[in-house]
Design a protein around this nucleic acid. Structure first.
Lengths: 159, 159
DNA sequence: TGATTTAGATAGTTCGGCTATGTAAACTAT
DNA sequence: ATAGTTTACATAGCCGAACTATCTAAATCA
């Protein structure tokens, strides 16, 4: 049905399907905490301690947005600010053990909720899904946004 | 390859990658209109005229949320309410030509923004991506929640 | 030292999500 | 036929997450 040359259509469909997947996940978990919370914790978990500005850039949100998210996380005891001895303006944000437990629990809840939708995949389908996730991670996950120029990504981003 | 335990991880990674993709798309387009707007218009385009309640269910949001979204769309002239002669409580929501133009433009903008990230896919990668999108659509797109029997999904949407 | 740049916090707005509840139409049962 | 119930949607009110603009304070530089 989709033409092989129609990458545009494919990407549009991908985003739409993703959008629906996120809605399903949101409803299925019934989590009172919201997506930005978990997104931020996962970035922190995978990248280690970061400053607010770095975290904002990696998460692709504006700095004041991240300031608020971090404030919320700190309120819940899920992150801590470690003062930077060399720069009194900044602090490293680190995930606490409680934060790690919370995010792990949420991932478990989320994946359990989605599992029924994907429990009966064939081997081929699973393979395609696995390769696509790897692909998306390679292209999209924790890579620097355009503002932080890396010569290895100049080509893609300047297009 | 320890498939069933892998699936959990895979789904978690999928959602996270999706979440990042959506952030990239949001920033790349610089669209002032927001995702719920386009999501709703696309659902309407693909399903034809719907009542607010049907639209909310298909979009997996609460009915008052959809009431607000539809009000915003109507303000912009992108949808219209067609009174139902048989039920004075309800109206069919239809996309106007202006709405169709707007959503098409946004999809074009979005996919153009994402294109550089995926322009250099190999044939195999493209194939995996295409099959995954088809898979996601089958599981997730415009279908009822998991409680609905799979064999009867996809039917009750047309008209 | 004084000026500039940088990191982050505040202020203020908008939007999209939710629940609870109101209202009027449609249905149902007597 | 009407009273009560159910249904469809709107309204009200809350909150989180996103944005821009601006402020403060620290670091850096001339």
């Amino acid at each position: 049905m989709t033409r092989s040359t129609d990458l545009h259509t494919l990407l549009g469909d991908l985003v739409q399907a993703n959008s629906r997947l996120v809605r399903i996940a949101a409803q299925a978990t019934g989590s009172t905490e919201s997506s930005a919370t978990w997104r931020t914790l996962r970035v922190l978990q995978q990248s280690g301690p970061l400053r607010v500005g770095e975290l904002a850039a990696l998460s692709r949100v504006a700095q004041p947005t991240m300031t608020k998210i971090v404030a919320g996380l700190a309120d819940r005891g899920w992150v801590e600010r470690i003062a930077d001895p060399d720069d009194a303006r900044a602090a490293q944000i680190v995930v606490t053990p409680a934060g790690a437990t919370a995010v792990d629990g949420w991932v478990e809840e989320l994946t359990s909720a989605l599992h029924p939708y994907f429990a009966d995949l064939t081997v081929d389908e699973l393979d395609a899904l696995r390769r696509t996730v790897a692909l998306l991670q390679e292209r999209v996950e924790l890579n620097d946004p355009a503002t932080t120029d890396k010569s290895t990504r100049t080509k893609e981003l300047s297009h």
